[in-house]
């Protein structure tokens, strides 16, 4: 188990480590509580697509461009993030997220294969910028609960919701 964790961590961290700005990524073995088993290829694809969705999220929030979200987000997550971007634009701010670390674990894979749930103990910096003035820079630590669903060629984030860090998972 430990060896597998380390291996997955290394595999994911190696290419990411090549770029200095990339967050550190640690992937725990799935904790599925009896739900459908996750094939290693599926697990890797989910993690890859989720991390890519963070890139889209960062750029979209910084540039207030909701159109950048649709390849990576769907459903509720897409609607809510789009709405946030419109609100940001309306009040004249934009936000710059810099994700520092992701600690990922798949916690549910529905039996029919149509949804997969993952937790992400994420650490990131968030800058709120009013026009060109940086209002604040905050270091955040949040536990994201993410639901991904398969699309034609990738997994898309359908629910992207953080919860208070103190709330137990179970």
């Amino acid at each position: 188990m430990m060896r597998r964790t380390l291996l997955m961590t290394c595999l994911l961290a190696m290419p990411l480590a090549l770029a200095a700005e990339q967050p550190s990524v640690q992937v725990e073995p799935p904790n599925l509580h009896g739900s459908r088993t996750v094939e290693s290829q599926t697990g890797a694809a989910v993690v890859r697509d989720y991390l890519e969705s963070w890139q889209a999220f960062r750029t979209a929030m910084d540039q207030n461009r909701a159109d950048l979200l649709s390849p990576d987000f769907a459903g509720t997550a897409l609607d809510k993030l789009t709405e946030t971007i419109h609100e940001q634009a309306a009040v004249g701010i934009h936000t710059r997220y810099t994700d520092r670390a992701h600690h990922l674990q798949i916690v549910f894979y529905s039996p029919e294969g149509l949804s997969l749930q993952m937790t992400d103990d994420a650490e990131y910096d968030m800058q709120v910028i009013d026009h060109d003035k940086v209002l604040t820079t905050q270091h955040m630590h949040a536990r994201y609960l993410v639901v991904l669903t398969p699309a034609e060629a990738r997994w898309r984030v359908r629910i992207f919701q953080s919860e208070p860090a103190a709330t137990p998972a179970d």
Binding site: F57, M61, K80, T84, E87, V91, I93, T95, L135, Q161
Partner: peptide
């Protein structure tokens, strides 16, 4: 006064 997060942005 601002409230800002991935879910909403209020001013």
């Amino acid at each position: 006064f601002y409230i800002v997060g991935p879910g909403q942005a209020l001013r």
